[in-house]
Every structure is written in structure tokens, then in C-alpha cells.
Amino acid sequence: MIKQIAVFLENREGRVSECCKVLKDANVNLRSMSIADTKEFGILRLITSDNDVAMKALKGAGFLASIVELVALEVPDKSGALAEMLIELYEGGINIEYMYSFAGENGHAQIGFKTNTPETAVAILEKAGAKVL
């Protein structure tokens, strides 16, 4: 399991850059980001080098931010690797709310996803031989 920071952003010009500037000023490095957007607001999801510092900086700047745990795994850099794992999860009845990828250190892709049943998901992935982070 890994931790991400989710930030609520109302749809207003410059809101994403304001958020990134706060993290820059706090010397926090971003490993990955993904945004879910609607017409009126967005939710920015971040994986950072230091969640505690990032949270403190964001809250201090008035952002609605929270820490949410994701199930994360490393998949080898070859075609079909992710599909195999997703099929295992699907067959195990795991519902994925959202997912995104981020860079691993050794050329492998890392995938994080949100589910309401993380323990079951981790058990399924481990049984299937995945490298769970």
C-alpha cells in the first residue's frame, strides 16, 4: 500500500499552478499526478516525496487535502503484464474506483489504484505473483 494526497480544486483559473507552487516552495518533489475533472471542480491526486511536509504546506495554504491509501504494484515492462493482473482482480470481485501509473526506478511500471477492499486486492495480487508495494 502507498499513500497519495488528494486535493479538491474548484474550477478556477490558476488553481492547479497555485497548488504546485505551494509544493515547490515546500521543496516537495512530485513522483506522479493524476487529475479527475468535471465541469465545476477537479480532484488532483499526487504521489510525493514527503507526504507529511506536502500536507502541512497544502493545508496551510487553505487547500482541502487528504491522505488516501492506494494498493500499488510493480508490473514488468512487457505487453499484457498489467492486463493479467487486472483480470485476476476482476475475477476476485475487486472494484477499482480509479487508477494511475507512476515511474519505477528500474524501468518497471508502478500502478496505484483505489478500491474499497484493499486487503482482498493485496491478497489476490500476491497469490498471482505480483510485486505489491
Binding site: 479538491f8 468535471t38 471542480f41 491526486r45 482541502l64 487528504s66 491522505i67 488516501v68 474506483e97 480509479y98
Partner: peptide, 15 residues
Amino acid sequence: ELSPDISLDEVAHVE
């Protein structure tokens, strides 16, 4: 304004 104490990471929650 949303409360600063809630945890929001899904669009569906906000909706």
C-alpha cells in the same frame, strides 16, 4: 465551502 476535515479523493463523493 467544503469542510477542511473531510477526505475527498473521488468525484462521486463530491457529487
